[in-house]
């Protein structure tokens, strides 16, 4: 986990999932349930976190890129609040060892 990343740090980096090949998950009823083999924890991802996870499974991305993709999927403009939500998701992913900024 990166120590206390500020918004600028989070925004300026490209993010990737940590060893996605080892992850196991299901997507049911618009909710992702992910088993994280290194911690042994099961994580429940809401709609935004689930979509970020899905996008990162597909390719590495920045906050801006993820927010734009989310907005595109929901057919809404990419607002600041969406950026904030994506940052929160990535901070949490970083905390639980699910994703990391590419050095």
């Amino acid at each position: 986990m990166c120590p206390a990343m500020g918004d600028v740090d989070i925004d300026s980096r490209t993010w990737r999932l940590l060893e996605p090949a080892g992850l196991t998950w299901r997507c049911w009823d618009d909710e992702y349930i992910v088993f994280h083999p290194w911690s042994g924890m099961t994580h429940y991802l809401d709609a935004i976190a689930g979509t970020v996870f899905e996008l990162l499974l597909d390719h590495d991305a920045t906050v801006r890129g993820l927010a734009a993709a989310l907005a595109n999927q929901a057919d809404t403009p990419a607002t600041d609040s969406l950026n904030v939500a994506v940052r929160q998701v990535l901070r949490r992913f970083d905390e639980i060892g699910l994703a990391e900024p590419i050095p």
Partner: peptide
């Protein structure tokens, strides 16, 4: 719902969190 059923089953898991991937794969 499947997600709800998963939560119900794992919440009642006596040793779900120690069975690791086998536990997840079995319940899923």
């Amino acid at each position: 719902g499947k997600s709800e059923a998963f939560r119900l089953l794992t919440a009642s898991g006596m040793n779900y969190y120690t069975t690791q991937r086998f536990g997840f794969d079995t319940v899923a």
